[in-house]
Amino acid sequence: MSFWRNLLRPAPLPVDGPPPSVGEDRRVYAVGDVHGRLDLLEDLLGRIAADDRARGPMPPHLILLGDLVDRGPASRQIVSLVMTLAAEEAGLQCLKGNHEELFLLAAKGDVTAIPTFRKAGGGATLASYGLPQRDFEAMADIEIAAWMLAHVPRDHVDFLDALPDRLIVGDYLFVHAGIRPGVAIERQSGADMRWIRRDFLEHEGAHPLMVVHGHSITDDVDERANRIGIDTGAYFSGRLTALGLEGSKRWVIQTGE
């Protein structure tokens, strides 16, 4: 059945040195930006589970690269699902994306964040929490901030607020957006890891670790010698991407094909 079909592609290796590895004792699946598409996330999780079973016993580790919310229709449902999975599965972790940052600022009553939240697809997010889109568009920024304080569950806010900005597994660094070239990993700013684009994307030199990131949309996996981008614009393309890693092996699993 096509639902269970895994889409595997060979991966180019760095020109110099041995290929990066997550270690021989684990299997990692990194998932790109979901943006409110619960249907795609559930589809992809099913494909990942089938892939994991087919590859044999190995502790699986699932990493969501952030931007769970905004744009798509089911942000609230996705946050609830990820919270449940994180509580039940020790091998699941989620990173904080720039859209989580905006959502959190607005949900804590920061009126100055509302204009950017609007532009970022916040109307769809609040619709999933019960605010009709027409009301969202008619309300003043201060009214939206007040509505969020009253209606967004505080456990959702607390969960998203506690998400980390980075995760290291073996020779891989997982972040939402990227890192500042030339800056040690331990000195990277949260803002860069959630928001950076051009300086990171155009850098061709080596990083301390192989960086796996989302945030910057490409038609397919953007695999370079120093980074791997897996944001394939799921909310409009229907293609949500996971990168599978085991030892030095890599493969890709996607929805929508």
Rank of each mutant, 00 (worst) to 15 (best):
L167C: 15
G182T: 06
Q133A: 11
M193I: 10
G170Y: 11
V169L: 12
R194F: 03
V211W: 12
D141I: 03
D155G: 05
R166D: 11
A145L: 02
F136W: 09
E186M: 12
A184R: 11
R187E: 00
Q188M: 00
R134W: 13
G205Y: 05
E143T: 02
G182C: 09
D135Y: 14
Q188H: 02
V211D: 07
F159D: 00
H215T: 10
A150W: 13
P153S: 06
G205V: 12
R166H: 13
V183N: 00
D192L: 09
R194P: 00
V157W: 11
R198Q: 14
V211M: 10
D135S: 15
I185N: 09
R198D: 15
H176P: 08
H156G: 05
L149H: 10
D171M: 05
G170L: 08
Q133H: 11
W147E: 00
P153T: 10
V152H: 10
R134V: 13
H213D: 14
A177E: 02
E204W: 15
A150F: 14
I144K: 02
V152E: 14
A206M: 09
A138R: 13
Q188E: 04
G182A: 11
H156Y: 03
M139A: 15
A177Y: 01
V157E: 10
R154M: 02
F136V: 06
R134P: 04
M210F: 14
R154N: 07
D135N: 15
L163D: 02
V212P: 07
A140Q: 12
L201I: 06
I168K: 15
V169H: 10
W195M: 08
V169A: 13
G190E: 01
E137S: 14
P164K: 03
S189C: 08
M210S: 06
V211S: 04
D158Q: 11
F200L: 02
F159C: 01
S189G: 15
H156T: 04
L167T: 11
L163G: 04
D165N: 12
I179V: 13
E202L: 13
A162M: 07
F200N: 03
A191C: 13
Q133D: 01
R187A: 01
R154C: 06
D199H: 14
